[in-house]
Design a protein around this nucleic acid. Structure first.
Lengths: 337, 337
DNA sequence: TTGTAAGCGTTATCAT
DNA sequence: ATGATAACGCTTACAA
């Protein structure tokens, strides 16, 4: 059986209440003698506080919930890992939930995390549809919620994201600077704020360069390895000379299909991705892509969470954006018409 | 504030105990009238049971802990995802912990998971050093522990693993069948059981073919993208014509360095990996590799866990192995001397 | 057919 | 300096 405060109390002849005070380093006026006795007993009996019991009364469990769209995506896996490391240092544990991009799951996860007494939730999967509802539930539960990676514009909530718009902008600008003017764009799901923003960045770069926007250059996909050739084919038929893929997974698919259909990158067209997954530098043609500020995001979200947890009084809403950076490799080349 | 049983009791005029019985579908003899009233109230007030309070008394929290070496490794990420999906269906939640291959962390995670009242733990990171200790702690806590992917031979415990020995065997045998006789092997950390077993499989295949084992053909690495050229260089200097890399990440590194140093795969040497990560089929030279039975593993481990949870009485120790399979792609070719 | 009360392991309030 | 005791939200005998 697990050692409880009661056991220590019995063992030392001190009351449960006093033992609790001592082991928690709460202010008290107990003699050094008893303190020592208690500490020693706790050590000997391998006492470990029961988080459930503690949580029941303090409303704190030193536990955070993290809801992600897809842990299998290296971008989110890395974020999850970093967050877990950071939290671990502050003695927090992590509940991990995968929505597989089903927005309905967000709500059910928020609820089940709350049932388990999490102190706060980090939600990296807002499609907008359930964000407001989640926010409302968390508010009612007086527990902090931070949106990560993807915000919902209508919802006034803490959020920590890469500057997706900037990411789209620098990717596109790079292509423009190489001389491209017919630039295709394979977007993520346009229901996601991150996709929208990358798209806006793409538009802004075009406008700045005086290139008019051509809706025929846009294809929508999802954030997985592109397996459907028709999207690439369509763009190529419109004679685009470069493609901005909204993430590296999409770019991998583009690359694979380009190879299969006899196109050579970057000779036939330039390709830039987004996220800089580990494999991007290993490809036969290393991928030019946008590096996400993962470290900053993870550290930032944990810092903010701990801050919100330390005193949860209607803090000013924080919406922080970190800048991504372009890394130029071999999949993009100059274009001369 | 959250709705509690007390609230429902007050609202309906029924006692807390009765409300509890009704909502938990426990055998009772309460009138249909009151049942309906209670269910309706629970619905209206959005009642959700407090898992902490419940757990305190039932010793069950519908929560499982999963300890992994590296969630960033797609093999483990996929396993984690599958497990989470399976558990979710049984209304269980998942605590995720990353050890980053530090065995000392295993113990501290086991303890902190236990503090939080997990019903059981799945441990996929046994280096052997702490496995026995973890097992002992879990036994004392009367909570099931299942070793996943990696066992510790000395420890009598439930385990569900791919047949790593078989994996090593079929990979090596494939190379032998292609005519190779000088076959290098870049192993994972030999402190890990999985590496040892793959190595044994390699040896067995050699022996069966009457090829004598040459210790100079062995290099030890860790399960990350190989970045140190010296290992590959050493093997190539010994004129190996094929290399079995103990996982795909190592193989990726081998491939990248081969390209950088002007070698062509499979012309200059054949390469076979292990795990079949998603990128392996995307490479310029798609990788021949060993597919792990991830689905079976995940389903198996969850099935066993739920079984152990349903009645935890010194069940017979189960050590289950699932067979991996070879997938032949383009990184291996026949060798004629 | 329903309610009372003890108890799970803690913390917190108030006595002594 | 230290100890009772109530309370957190729930389950579970045991009464009524």
């Amino acid at each position: 059986m697990r050692t409880t405060l009661k056991d220590i109390a019995a063992y030392t002849g001190v009351s449960i209440a006093s033992v609790s005070l001592i082991l928690n380093n709460k202010p008290h006026r107990l003699s050094n003698d008893t303190c020592e006795k208690v500490f020693k007993a706790a050590e000997e009996l391998h006492y470990r506080p029961n988080v459930l019991a503690k949580g029941l009364i303090t409303n704190r469990t030193l536990t955070i919930g993290l809801i992600l769209p897809d842990i299998t995506n290296a971008y989110f896996a890395t974020i999850a890992k970093q967050i877990q490391i950071q939290l671990q240092e502050a003695d927090y544990n992590l509940f991990l939930c995968n929505t597989n991009d089903y927005p309905e799951k967000e709500l059910s996860y928020v609820n089940s995390l709350l049932d388990r007494g999490v102190d706060g939730i980090i939600l990296a999967t807002a499609t907008g549809s359930s964000a407001a509802k989640c926010q409302q539930i968390m508010l009612k539960a007086s527990r902090p919620l931070i949106f990560l990676d993807r915000t919902s514009p209508g919802v006034a909530a803490h959020s920590i994201c890469p500057d997706h718009e900037l990411g789209g902008y620098i990717a596109t600008k790079h292509l423009i600077e190489l001389g491209h003017r017919r630039i295709g764009c394979i977007t993520g799901p346009m229901s996601l704020q991150s996709s929208k923003e990358r798209f806006f960045g793409y538009i802004r770069a075009l406008q700045e360069a005086g290139i008019s926007f051509n809706p025929e250059f846009i294809q929508e996909a999802d954030f997985r390895i592109l397996s459907d050739y028709s999207k690439l084919e369509t763009l190529l038929q419109k004679n685009v000379t470069a493609i901005f893929a909204h993430n590296d997974l999409i770019a991998y698919g583009v690359y694979q299909q380009a190879v299969q259909h006899g196109f050579v990158i970057p000779k036939d067209f330039s390709l830039v991705g987004c996220d800089d997954l580990p494999f991007s530098q290993l490809m036969a043609v290393p991928l030019t892509t946008v590096v996400q500020p993962i470290k900053e995001l993870s550290e930032g979200v944990v810092r903010l969470m701990l801050e919100l947890l330390s005193d949860y009084k209607e803090k000013k809403i924080q919406t922080i954006k970190y800048a991504p950076q372009l890394v130029v490799r071999s999949s993009t080349a100059e274009y001369h018409n």
